[in-house]
Computed example of a mutant assay.
Amino acid sequence: MLLPGMDGSGELFAPLIQVLGADLHTQVVRYPPEQPLGYGPLIEQVRRQLPAGRPFILLGESFSGPIAVSLAAERPAGLLGLVLCCTFIRNPRPGLAWLSGLVPLVSPRLAPRALLSQLLLGRFATPALDQALAGALAPLSSATLQARLRAVLEVDATAHLQQIQVPLLYLQATADRLVPADAARLIERYSGDFQCLQLEAPHCLLQARPHEAAHALERFAKTVGTDQGDQVAGRSTSSRGCSE
């Protein structure tokens, strides 16, 4: 089960899904672009979509990390593992909290496309990825984006993380300009069965390095017992901490 980043569209999972292969069943969650919802209502929406009657693994990308963590802490039936990609359990940039007053001025239609590309893709940008990113953000209303930004500034899911009993894989991008490495270390501190894999990638790791990400997810899925690939995610048997 794939939970999307700040755009909420789920469209940006396309490169990953294309290389995962037909043997893996994926369920993409999409958040309403016109509803300014914070984490609480979004968690409720995702909860209603959790697979019933079959094993699954939950993947939370970027903005959706706290949602995935909160739901995994509830230990839903069938959950085998949790994957967090370029994400956080607290505001990943607390030093910029003073900018919260500017959130009401943020609009997806005013953000320069070149700036978004630099922040999210950097040197990994391609015309196709730039176009996909712009297309995913286009339907977002300003109120929706502002609500999601406020949610990031205020979130603290550490207590939920401590309740998780399934293996956790963290995919970390070495060239991430939004979420620092400290975010993964904080998650490790509060996790039980934790493994971190580093990939040379930007914040949009799953889009820029889909083949490498798919390989890691498939290997991890086999380890947690999803021999039929019912969902996307995984577990590694190597030591704690981030490795390349």
Rank of each mutant, 00 (worst) to 15 (best):
P4E: 04
M1D: 06
V232W: 04
A114H: 04
V179I: 15
Q45H: 12
T226N: 07
P66K: 11
L169C: 05
F194L: 13
I89C: 11
A111K: 11
P41H: 01
L12Q: 00
G10I: 03
P167K: 05
I187P: 01
R113P: 05
L120K: 03
H160R: 14
D130R: 12
R48T: 15
L84W: 07
P4W: 13
A111V: 05
R75L: 10
P104L: 15
L80M: 13
P180F: 09
R54Q: 13
Q163S: 15
P36L: 08
P210C: 06
Q131D: 10
Q165N: 06
L12V: 04
C85T: 07
L50T: 15
C85A: 06
Q198S: 15
L137N: 09
A151L: 09
T237S: 02
R113K: 15
H160C: 12
L137R: 11
L116A: 14
D130P: 00
P94L: 14
R177L: 08
G135H: 00
G135L: 05
L12F: 00
A157M: 11
S70W: 01
Q18Y: 10
A143L: 02
G78T: 00
A114D: 14
Q45K: 06
L149Y: 15
P92R: 10
H160E: 14
Q45L: 14
S100C: 11
P104C: 12
R30W: 02
V179P: 11
L96P: 01
L102Q: 10
G60A: 10
P76N: 04
E34D: 12
F124T: 13
P41T: 04
Q146T: 15
P51M: 02
I89F: 04
V83G: 10
H25A: 08
F124I: 08
R235Q: 01
S100N: 14
M6Q: 02
F124N: 10
L110S: 06
Q162T: 06
T226A: 10
I164K: 13
C85Y: 04
T237L: 13
E218D: 09
L105G: 09
G135A: 04
E61I: 02
M1S: 12
L115I: 05
L50F: 11
L2A: 07
T26C: 06
P112A: 03
G192Q: 13
S100Y: 01
V28E: 05
P139F: 01
V179C: 09
P32L: 02
A77I: 15
A201G: 09
E188H: 06
P76E: 08
A136H: 08
S141G: 09
D227T: 09
R177Q: 10
H211S: 04
A214C: 07
T87E: 07
L84N: 09
V103G: 08
L168Q: 12
D7W: 08
